[in-house]
Simulated assay, not measured.
Amino acid sequence: VTAEAWKGTDHPALLRRMPHHAESSPEELDRFRSAPGDEVRLILHTQPEHVYAVGEKVGRLFEVRVAGEKIEERKAFALERLGTELSVDQLAKEGEFVDVLGVTKGFGFQGHIQRWGVKLQPRKNSKHRRMIGTLGPHNPSFVTYRIPQAGQQGYHRRTQFNLRVLKVVPDPRTDPITPAGGFPNYGEVRSGCLILHGSLPGPPSG
């Protein structure tokens, strides 16, 4: 890190996850503009209080890289958005392709059959039907990673690549998209959102 620029805030999502930083002075902002480097990053946090049907109470803190051709343009973009609220229409446009990061639906500790879908053992040929037939050959004398075994299923971080943005909805109150009766397992969309072509990792209300 060669230079930093901060905006003073008292939002609980930031105060609970990181130490408080005072607002940067004009001299520090000038130092940020003239600092060497080829990458600019923003520290953002979510606002779950504005999203309906999500059980989170404290926003998530994450870091995002600012893309662009020239480093001066990226620094100017970061300083303009410093301390402001980003809406969905500033993140993507209709027809673009985006990558979505998410956490898959968790199922806890599961056995061989549920986790990998292997075949049940014959009823008269095994004391344990819901197990695999062998852990592998004598040589090599260890269990390889290809052997299906019991363990954690789901709740993994995954990235879905190249999803086309079909529609950008900054305000559903002026452009309602919720069908009659609401979306299954979610309800009514009350905040800005993106409509993507494809599936996303995680539960419907995540």
Rank of each mutant, 00 (worst) to 15 (best):
K70A: 12
Q149Y: 07
L120V: 09
A76R: 15
T144L: 12
N185A: 15
S34V: 11
G206K: 01
F97W: 08
Q90F: 07
R158T: 13
L135T: 12
A180R: 15
E188D: 14
G37Y: 05
T174S: 15
L196S: 03
V189F: 00
E4A: 04
E4D: 07
L44T: 05
K7C: 10
H112T: 10
Q153D: 11
R60G: 14
R129W: 04
I132S: 07
R123W: 10
R173E: 14
Q47R: 14
P137C: 07
Q90L: 11
R74I: 04
A150M: 09
V58F: 07
K93T: 09
G136A: 09
T134K: 13
Q153H: 10
P12N: 03
V51D: 00
M18A: 13
F142R: 05
G187A: 09
A150L: 06
N139M: 08
D99K: 04
T134A: 11
V40Q: 01
P36Y: 05
E49C: 02
I43Y: 02
D89V: 02
G136D: 07
D175N: 15
G154D: 10
G106R: 03
G55Y: 01
G55M: 01
V1C: 10
T134L: 07
G136N: 07
I177N: 14
H11T: 04
P184M: 14
S25M: 05
A3I: 01
L44D: 01
